[in-house]
């Protein structure tokens, strides 16, 4: 359903008016480029009176016609954004969710539009930015203050007893479904079983908290994006994913996401969380991060190889696997056990 078509646009406008309980005018409606998982639109509107009086620049996120199994639909993503926003995490403020498919054909929600740069390659080109790293640490700690049980997040299921071993099982399952021998990833997974840390208290993990998934405007963090993989897990999983060498966009010397040293990122986190980070557990989850990214890369390459989705980008993604694997071999060498 093309949103900008007259009828759909007026149906959307009427719907927003019914939620706001007053006259609303959509002044702009434009499709935004985005991933294959979502369908995003820029919506500008004017509200005549009441609580939301004034002009607003929003984003409408609608489920794509075909969802990706491992990611949340818009209804769940809306709940996650609301929970994160209430916990004080810098995110685009969610406005409301519509699950009535008679309006736009598929569920959607509206959130405030944030501005800034998200490209990892551009962000790591700037100067060392300890202030940004500290802010990202603080925001991650606020996210991790969300802990089960939560009635608003029941769709996340129950927290795994041992997040590390649960992840190992998941990635072994993915490798088996690819039917593609990956001995170095198996080597890493064997190490991850042997070295699994004692599970900590479960927290809400973002699971893709890294440079490239947050927006920065004039040096200020404007929002953390891409919540579709969030779930209950170990706090060190997000910390390790953020610091993993594969997410430094070539700025390998700056261990906190290619933007700064680790210290300010850890300090920002610890000051807010009131909990000390276990550096050994972070190192463990950095190995897991490389395994996870390699498995995802193999899945993406398989989409090209199978002929389902011929794509040069997916084909080249398969070629990031060797360097991830070399890193896995290096990281698992010095533990004294492996």
């Amino acid at each position: 359903m093309e949103l900008s078509a007259g009828k759909t646009r007026s149906r959307l406008q009427d719907y927003i008016a019914s939620v706001a309980n007053c006259a609303v005018e959509i002044t702009e409606l434009k499709h935004l480029s985005g991933g294959a998982i979502q369908d995003n639109w820029a919506v500008n509107l004017t509200v005549a009176e009441g609580e939301w009086v004034g002009s607003h620049e929003l984003v409408l996120r609608r489920d794509a016609p075909s969802g990706v199994a491992a990611s949340h639909g818009r209804a769940h993503e809306y709940q996650l954004l609301k929970a994160a926003h209430s916990a004080g995490v810098q995110v685009p403020e969610p406005c409301f969710l519509c699950t009535d498919t008679s309006i736009l054909g598929r569920p959607f929600f509206l959130m405030h539009r944030i501005s800034g740069e998200a490209s990892g390659y551009l962000l790591v080109k700037g100067n060392d930015d300890p202030g940004l790293a500290r802010k990202l640490g603080l925001n991650l700690a606020r996210l991790h203050s969300i802990q089960p049980p939560r009635n608003d997040l029941v769709f996340l299921g129950s927290a795994p007893n041992d997040p590390a071993l649960a992840a190992v099982e998941r990635y072994r399952g993915y490798i088996d479904s690819l039917d593609w021998p990956m001995p170095v990833l198996e080597w890493g997974l064997t190490w991850l079983v042997a070295e699994a840390p004692t599970p900590g208290k479960p927290v809400l993990c973002h699971r893709d908290y890294r440079t490239g998934n947050y927006m920065v405007d004039c040096g200020e963090l404007t929002g953390v994006l891409d919540w579709e993989f969030a779930g209950w897990g170990d706090r060190h999983e997000d910390l390790g994913w953020f610091c993993a060498k594969c997410w430094r966009f070539g700025a390998t010397g700056r261990e906190a996401g290619g933007i700064s040293e680790r210290a300010p990122f850890y300090e920002g986190y610890e000051a807010e969380a009131g909990t000390a980070i276990d550096p050994k557990a972070v190192a463990y989850w950095e190995v897991m991060a490389h395994v996870r990214w390699a498995v995802i890369a193999a899945q993406q390459a398989a989409r090209h190889i199978s002929g389902i989705e011929p794509s040069l980008e997916l084909a080249l993604t398969g070629h990031v696997i060797p360097e991830l694997e070399l890193e896995i071999l290096k990281m698992t060498l010095d533990s004294g056990h492996a």
């Binding site: 170095v184 064997t190 990031v320 060797p322 071999l329």
Partner: peptide, 28 residues
């Protein structure tokens, strides 16, 4: 079979590193 502490652990690790370095040399 090749977990830490097994007799062929070091040899197998060296083999994996050899093939991985060759593959990195091709891919990046």
């Amino acid at each position: 079979t090749y977990a830490a502490g097994t007799p062929d652990h070091a040899r197998m690790r060296a083999f994996l590193e050899t093939i991985t370095r060759r593959r990195v040399g091709e891919s990046n």
